[in-house]
Design a protein around this nucleic acid. Structure first.
Length: 226
DNA sequence: GCATTAACCACAG
DNA sequence: CTGTGGTTAATGC
């Protein structure tokens, strides 16, 4: 595969915008762009981490194996880095990333990436910023999810999908019922029932995977009350 | 006690 | 994988 031309790439991360022409050229020699189909694994928990992965298009779930079942940690929408903590923080991936839609990701050699952090403070700062923001939203989600009952937890995820991911009241559910359960730490049966409940009380409309939030105010209420 | 919540199991599409 | 019904354990009036 020929080297990527990162200099003129339109999907640079905020950090990469700080790179010099020379650094971008270096980046090009060690960056490979790969397409993934919906459902394909981008990197696997337990494998050796040798690349930084930057998602340029698509939606991805970050998940790890629990003692009982899979646990979805986070949904990540492009553009975003997928595994900075697991790639830099350990030699082996602590979690997996799976494409929820057709996606494109750049694989960047860890050595090069580390050099940029050491050499370029603007680049390093953006990376730290990214990590900090993610950590904050994760803290928020986990405190929220751990203190709400099922309706509140499900409502929160639906609101999040609607507001943050799709920016619409109407969207196709990117997660199966089982995955929703893995996300909000519940059982698939409970999620299934709760979704029907929401539909029955006209808060949402669900046909197949198509979901429409009809009564946003009420869903918001349920979300906040827990 | 009684009601509520939600997990677990089993079975059927 | 999803939906449903029955059962059960924990928790809160």
């Amino acid at each position: 595969m020929p080297n990527q031309n990162c200099i003129h790439c339109g999907s640079k991360s905020d950090a990469e915008k700080h790179l010099t022409q020379g650094e971008l050229t270096t980046l090009g020699t060690s960056c490979a762009r790969v397409n993934f189909k919906k459902g394909e694994l981008i990197f696997r928990e337990g494998n050796v981490a040798t690349n930084i992965v930057y998602l340029t298009s698509g939606l991805v779930k970050i998940h790890m194996k629990g003692p009982v079942s899979d646990k979805i940690l986070r949904l990540t929408k492009a553009p975003a880095y997928l595994g900075l903590p697991t790639t830099i923080g350990d030699k082996v991936n602590q979690y997996s990333a799976t494409a929820l839609s057709n996606s494109t990701a750049c694989f960047i050699s860890l050595d090069i990436f580390r050099d940029f952090i050491v050499q370029n403070s603007g680049f390093a700062y953006e990376i730290i910023l990214d990590l900090c923001r993610n950590e904050l939203t994760d803290y928020q989600r986990y405190t929220n999810l751990s203190q709400k009952q099922l309706p509140g937890r499900l409502a929160e995820i639906l609101m999040c999908l609607s507001e943050k991911i799709f920016e619409s009241n109407r969207f196709e559910l990117p997660l199966s019922i089982t995955e929703l359960a893995d996300f909000i730490s519940s059982s698939r049966e409970s999620v299934s029932r709760q979704l029907s409940e929401f539909a029955k009380s006209k808060i949402i409309k669900l046909s197949g995977r198509e979901l429409e939030i009809v009564n946003t105010e009420l869903l918001q209420m349920i979300c906040m009350k827990g």
